[in-house]
């Protein structure tokens, strides 16, 4: 029985963390219908930033979290201005192709510059602490990463749903043309979406370094999980992505517990089945 409970708990924790990538993707997806294939690789860049802050200046990942968040904003806005904005008005598939190219270039760049080694932070401030309740044990880095992710997602949700800035974002998402008519500048809103998405990238970079190690190829794993979560949650829905991520996390964790190497396959199969039953995602409406 303990196996099942700890599987569920660790799935939920992983789900919270991965939800950050999904939320970052869903913001861009919701506002400009763009699947950003480079999102996972941008998280990889943020993870390396946090790693080098630790190895070079002995910054704990928790301490470099705000730095990573600010850097993330810069990364997001730069990506938009440099790669996506020149393609405004061009077919969405061209924008997708550009993010694919960026993904390959970032991964290759990291290989070239940093080598294929896996780098982790073995001893953070919080590592070593653990929480035990019955058969379930949770390590402090896991708990902090999940908690931080939830706080960050709540903040993003507040920004989008309860501020004037967020209202302009939603307006463009619903009808770009009408939004322009009432005086909202699409370019600013897209920058905003990429900026907020960048925050999630930066925060994910700092939090993932608590529990994972980084190598140049980690991006694709995060990205796939993120895409699936975005679709499962429903077009542009932040909390939909969050709950979808929890489902995927638990499915993967239980799959790994009982079927070992088929864990991730179980999660994707669950995704496909849910999609067949609910074609517009969990929170989507047709």
């Amino acid at each position: 029985m303990g196996l099942f409970e700890s599987g569920v708990v660790s799935g939920l924790l992983v789900g919270c963390e991965y939800a950050l990538v999904g939320v970052g993707l869903t913001l861009i997806f919701g506002t400009m219908e763009l699947v950003n294939f480079a999102q996972g690789d941008l998280v990889m860049v943020a993870m390396y930033l946090v790693f080098f802050l630790w190895s070079g200046a002995h910054f704990d990942p928790l301490l470099s979290l705000p730095i990573a968040a600010v850097a993330g904003i810069a990364i997001g806005i730069l990506t938009y201005e440099g790669l996506i904005r020149p393609l405004t008005g061009k077919p969405v598939i061209a924008q997708m192709v550009v993010t694919l190219g960026a993904s390959a270039a970032l991964e290759g760049g990291a290989q070239l510059w940093l080598g294929p080694n896996t780098e982790g932070i073995p001893n953070t401030v919080v590592s070593g602490f653990r929480l035990t309740a019955g058969a379930v044990t949770v390590t402090a880095p896991e708990a902090i990463a999940a908690f931080g992710a939830v706080v960050c997602i709540a903040l993003v949700s507040y920004l989008v749903h309860h501020t004037r800035m967020g209202a302009s974002l939603q307006a463009v998402a619903q009808d770009p043309y009408a939004a322009q008519l009432v005086g909202i500048r699409p370019r600013r809103v897209f920058m905003l979406a990429w900026g907020i998405s960048g925050i999630t990238i930066g925060v994910a970079g700092a939090l993932f370094m608590q529990t994972y190690a980084v190598d140049p190829t980690v991006g694709i794993t995060f990205a796939i999980f993120g895409f699936v979560v975005v679709i499962l949650g429903g077009f542009g829905s932040i909390w939909g992505a969050f709950f979808a991520s929890l489902i995927m996390g638990v499915a993967e964790s239980l799959g790994t517990t009982y079927l070992s190497e088929y864990g991730l396959a179980v999660a994707f199969a669950v995704f496909l089945v849910i999609l067949v039953v609910r074609p517009m995602g969990l929170r989507g409406t047709s």
């Binding site: 192709v97 550009v98 270039a105 990291a110 510059w113 140049p216």
Partner: peptide
């Protein structure tokens, strides 16, 4: 590593 970088940049430029 240089190979995917060039490959990626060419894809970006063509796109």
């Amino acid at each position: 590593g240089l190979e995917p970088v060039i490959y990626g940049i060419v894809i970006i430029l063509v796109g």
